[in-house]
Design a protein around this nucleic acid. Structure first.
Lengths: 221, 221
DNA sequence: GCATCAACCGGACATTTGTCAGGATTGCGC
DNA sequence: GCGCAATCCTGACAAATGTCCGGTTGATGC
């Protein structure tokens, strides 16, 4: 299981976006991009405030200043908006995934996790929240795409952990650890209603140290 | 900060249920209890399957075999159903809270967490899932009740950890750890779509060991 | 100044939703 | 068998929602 292979699988999984409808009413591509950004920005705010199901097209139109009829010249339907928002916020190209960081052995485990969480919380907070909250509203095919992506990520992550710990044989606990670390990515976003008074940096460092200890603990059987 | 005081605060927080409306149409209390159970059971399933907002009163009536008009003789409205369901599943009296278990020093840290997670996952799985998913749909006052309860729990938990670790002065990281452990309660329920092939016991033990290591790691600065 | 066409929008549609009034039904005491 | 109170349910209402038809506006090229 060479390192390039890992990267390939990751890259493949990464391109596994949710399928966005294409609409051929408006032709000016720059305009389309503009309006879609307006729409998705408004939708993101609203989905986070009120949830997907409780947000109406009218809400989105009002906040984005797009006409209720015109909005269908830019998006196919409400679910299409959710897909676009998730593609933007959850499948971000500009955030390194943890296995990528871990592949560089010059970075200690704890520091790697720290870097991962810091990036993720800074730039993907909303996306994480949205993903965890909106999974039930996705269509089965979209949920499948998500699962494929996540499974590939987990596989690479557990491979990297395996390598880092210098284990020789399989250990099912690695899968659990991989899932745990991924889950911790949601800790900050999901529980910020409870510890809004603590500085993010303190949280990031404590969680990273904890995660590293958790992983190291596997070495001692 | 005596141990009895801790228990008092916990008991107080525990009684902080969400307020259920009382309706004075039907008088037979046994009947009321029966019907409410039917309704809440059906609602629980549906909320988990389709989410709160996407579930209609008609859905609940159909699955619970309660008439669409009669249902309002037993519950006040849709939100009232959610409150009752959460009171049943999330505020359970029959699951020990972690601070209670930790108060008994004869139980090692890891084993205490293990016991907590095992109980919680066996009996509160649905409740946990529901709570995390439905918080956005609660009315502000209900969310406040939840937050009060959770804050009290976190305070006690971090006190117990403080005591267990034998620390002498305050450490803000204890709050974070307390929140982390509480968050891990949701790990099994929330990510079971990804590791359905691993046996629960393996997961519980790995997570508990990890959590214990995470906590111990604080001692070594 | 006019024709053309891309972009915009007023208003409406069919449906679904939460809710409940008021009549129908049931079971019980006598 | 009758009367009565407790429970059930038919059917409806107003409001809200996703969607989009068909007309209007405005800029551009001539």
């Amino acid at each position: 299981m060479s390192s390039t292979k890992v990267t390939d699988r990751l890259r493949a999984a990464r391109s596994e976006l949710l399928k966005e409808a294409d609409i051929r009413v408006v032709q000016n591509q720059a305009l389309i991009d503009d309006r879609r950004k307006q729409i998705c920005d408004a939708a993101t705010e609203l989905f986070l405030e009120k949830g997907f199901a409780a947000t109406t097209i009218r809400d989105i139109c009002a906040r984005s200043n797009v006409n209720q009829a015109s909005i269908y010249d830019y998006i196919a339907n409400k679910n299409d908006i959710l897909r676009r928002v998730l593609n933007q916020l959850w499948f971000r190209e500009d955030v390194q995934m943890l296995p990528e960081i871990l592949a560089d052995d010059s970075i200690p485990l704890q520091e790697a996790i720290e870097r991962f969480l810091r990036q993720s919380w800074k730039v993907k907070r909303k996306g994480t929240l949205l993903a965890y909250r909106c999974i039930p509203h996705l269509l089965p095919e979209d949920r499948k795409a998500l699962r494929i992506r996540e499974a590939a990520l987990m596989k690479d992550l557990s491979d990297q952990l395996h390598r880092r710990l210098g284990l020789t044989d399989e250990d099912p606990r690695l899968d659990i650890l991989a899932n745990l670390v991924a889950f911790l990515q949601a800790f900050g976003p999901m529980r910020d209603w409870l510890h809004r008074d603590l500085p993010d940096e303190t949280i990031i460092r404590t969680v990273s140290a904890g995660a590293a200890a958790m992983i190291e603990a596997v070495k001692g059987t």
